[in-house]
Design a protein around this nucleic acid. Structure first.
Lengths: 329, 329
DNA sequence: GGACCAGGATCTGACGTCTTA
DNA sequence: GTAAGACGTCAGATCCTGGTC
C-alpha cells in the first residue's frame, strides 16, 4: 500500500506541492481559504506526514531519546512518566530504550538515538563509576539523571544519595538502634556508593561503626535481596536495623525477616529507598526515603527542552534532597 | 555541529559515495580490501548513519511501534520486555508509547507511529469495548494484545480472561467459600468483562450466585482498590473470598483487610491476577492467576516479525491459558 | 501611467542515502 | 567499481496579481 503524499494532494487541489506543505504546516503567506481547503482535502485523503522525509529536509526532530537501565522498574517508570509529561506539552515524543545496565548495550543504544538524530537525550548512565562513554561527543544535547556519571556532562539531575545515607543513619540512631547493616546494589553505580558512604558517615557522627561485613551487595531484585537478607540475618542475630538500596529489594527483605520470624519493627527496623507507589501498602508498610521521581523526570526534561531551544543554556546541576518517610517498618 | 556523511567518507577514501554505502551495508560486489578500508575510515571519522535519509530512500524501517496503556505498570513492563527481546534478535528497535487508556490519545499516537512509517505495531487497545479505531486501515501490519479489540484485527495474543474467571471460581468453591465478590477495573475493557463473566459462570456451575452488589469496579490502582475494598468489607461482613482484577489492586485489598483486622486467609481469601514479580513477596504472599506476560510479548512480537517479512502470513489468534498459583492469601 | 508594494502562490533545488543502470 | 537520479518534504528565491500613490 502506498501512502498519500503532498504531490497527490497538490494534484487534487490544483496547487503546487509547496503550497500544500505551507498549508499543512500552518505557515504565513497563504490565504485562509486555500489553507482550509487544502487541509480538508488532505484529511479526506487520509494524508499522514512522512516524518523521515520531513526530518531529512527540515533538520527538525521533535523526538528525544531516553536511556534507562530497566523498564520493568517502578522507579524508572515513574521518572519516564515525568519526562513524558514535560515533553508532551511541547509536542515532543520520547524514544525510551533500556540498557539492562550493560555498557556495550548502552553504547549501541546511544548510536541508535543519534542515528535517528533525536533532538536531545536523557540518560541514566549504566555502571557510572566505570562508564567511560563520552556523552559530550555525541553531538546532541544531553542530560544525565539519577547518577552523576564519570565524564563531565552538560547537566545532571540526581537525588542526593549521600544525604539519603545520612538520613537513614540519623533515623536509626534516633530510634535507638546500635547494630545497623546495609544491603546494596552489586554494580558500580554512584548512587549506591554515595548511599553507603552517607550511611557510614551518619553512623560515625553518632559514634557507631558500620562494620565491613555488615555491608552486603546483591542484584537489585526482591528475589536476590530475599536470599541475601535470609543468609545474613540467620548469621548475624544482633542486627536491629537494615537500610536497603531500594523499595523493591526492601520488599524481599521484609519477607525474609517475616519468614525467619523476626518481628518488624520490634526486632529489626527496615528502611527502603525511593518510595515507590506500592510501598505504603506493604505489610508492614515500608518506611523509606522518598525521591521526587516524577519531578526529577519532569524537571530534567524541561531543562533538556531549554537546551534544545537555546544551545547556550547554562549547565545545570540539580541535586534533590530526599525525604525520610516513616511508616510501620 | 555537522554530522559526517557518506560524501565526506567518499572524499577521504577516494571512492564514490555509492561505494561507501555498499561497503557500510555489507553489500556484495565490493572488494574485501576496500570494504575494510572504508569501514575503518568511517569509524575513525565517527560516522553515524542518518536513519531518516536511509529510511526515506530504502523504505525500510527496522522499528516497530508499541502502544500500551500505562508504562508504570509491572504487567505491561514485563510484556514490553518480551517484545523487546524478540525484536532485538532481529535488530529491530521498539518505539513504545502509552495511551493512558485514552482513545483520542491512542489515535494520535497511532498517527505518530504511522508518520514514522514503523514496520509494524503492537497495540493494547484502550477501552476496547467502545474502541472503534480501525487498525486495519493504518497500512501497517499490526497485532492486538491483551485485549481482543472491537474491530477485526489481523492477529491477537491474549490471555483467556474467561478462563481466569472460571479458575478463580473453582478455586474458591474448592476452598469451601460461599460468599464471593469481585473487584474489577472501571473501564470498558474486554479482559475485565470476560473475567467477571467467567467468574459468574464458574460460581453458577457450583450453584452459587454472584450478586450484583458484590461486583465492584474502581480505578486500577492499589489506592483505589484499598478504598473500594475498605468500604465494601465494612458493609458486607459475610464475604469470604475476593477475586481482584490485578495484583497491584490486590495489594491494596490485602492492606484494606489487614487494617480492618480481617484475617487472610482464615476470614477471607484473596486472589489476584497476573502474577507480577513482587506478589510472591507480599505478606501474605498473594495467590493469583498467572498470565505468561513475557511469553505473550515475545510471541506476539515474533508473529509481527513474520507478518512484516511475509505480508501474506496467516491471521493468528492466540489465547493463553492462565494458571492458578496458590500461595498464602 | 509608471513605480512600488504586499500578499499569495510557484519553482527550483537540496537534505543524505540507496537503487538502478 | 561509477554515475545519475529518486525517495518526500520543505526552505529560499522568484514570480505573479491587483491595488496605491
Amino acid at each position: 500500500m502506498a501512502y498519500i503524499k503532498l504531490k497527490d494532494i497538490a494534484k487534487k487541489a490544483n496547487v503546487s506541492i509547496n503550497t500544500v506543505s505551507r498549508a499543512l504546516n500552518n505557515k504565513s503567506d497563504i490565504g485562509d481559504d486555500t489553507k482550509i481547503r487544502i487541509r480538508r482535502i488532505a484529511d479526506e485523503m487520509g494524508y499522514i506526514l512522512n516524518a523521515s522525509a520531513s526530518r531529512l529536509r527540515s533538520k527538525e526532530n521533535r523526538m528525544i531519546g531516553v536511556i534507562i537501565t530497566h523498564i520493568d522498574n517502578a522507579f524508572y517508570a515513574r521518572i519516564l512518566q515525568g519526562i513524558n509529561d514535560a515533553i508532551s506539552e511541547k509536542e515532543y515524543t520520547m524514544l525510551a530504550l533500556s540498557s539492562g545496565e550493560n555498557l556495550e548495550k548502552e553504547k549501541s543504544l546511544l548510536k541508535t538515538l543519534v542515528s535517528n538524530r533525536v533532538a536531545g537525550t536523557i540518560i541514566v548512565p549504566s555502571q557510572d563509576m566505570i562508564n567511560s562513554l563520552d556523552y559530550d561527543n555525541i553531538g546532541v544535547p544531553h542530560i544525565t539523571i539519577v547518577r552523576k556519571g564519570n565524564k563531565n556532562t552538560r547537566s545532571y539531575f540526581i537525588s542526593d544519595s549521600f544525604q539519603s545515607g545520612i538520613k537513614a543513619a540519623e533515623y536509626f540512631i534516633q530510634q535507638g538502634c546500635s547494630h545497623s547493616a546495609y544491603i546494596g546494589f552489586n554494580l558500580p553505580v554512584s548512587c549506591n556508593r554515595d548511599r553507603v558512604n552517607g550511611f557510614i558517615k551518619g553512623l560515625r557522627d553518632a559514634e557507631v561503626i558500620l562494620k565491613e561485613n555488615r555491608i552486603i551487595h546483591c542484584d537489585a531484585t526482591p528475589q536476590a535481596a530475599y536470599n541475601a537478607a535470609t543468609e545474613f540475618l540467620k548469621n548475624d542475630k544482633q542486627i536491629d536495623s537494615l537500610f536497603v538500596y531500594n523499595d523493591s529489594m526492601a520488599l524481599g527483605v521484609i519477607r525474609a525477616a517475616h519468614d525467619l520470624k523476626i518481628r518488624i519493627p520490634e526486632d529489626i527496623r527496615i528502611l527502603g529507598h525511593d518510595d515507590v507507589a506500592e510501598s505504603r501498602y506493604y505489610i508492614p508498610s515500608l518506611s523509606t526515603i522518598r525521591v521526587p521521581k516524577y519531578r526529577l523526570g519532569y524537571d530534567s526534561a524541561s531543562e533538556l527542552m531549554a537546551l534544545i531551544n537555546d544551545n547556550k543554556a547554562p549547565e545545570k546541576y540539580v541535586s534533590y534532597l530526599p525525604e525520610l518517610i516513616i511508616r510501620e517498618s
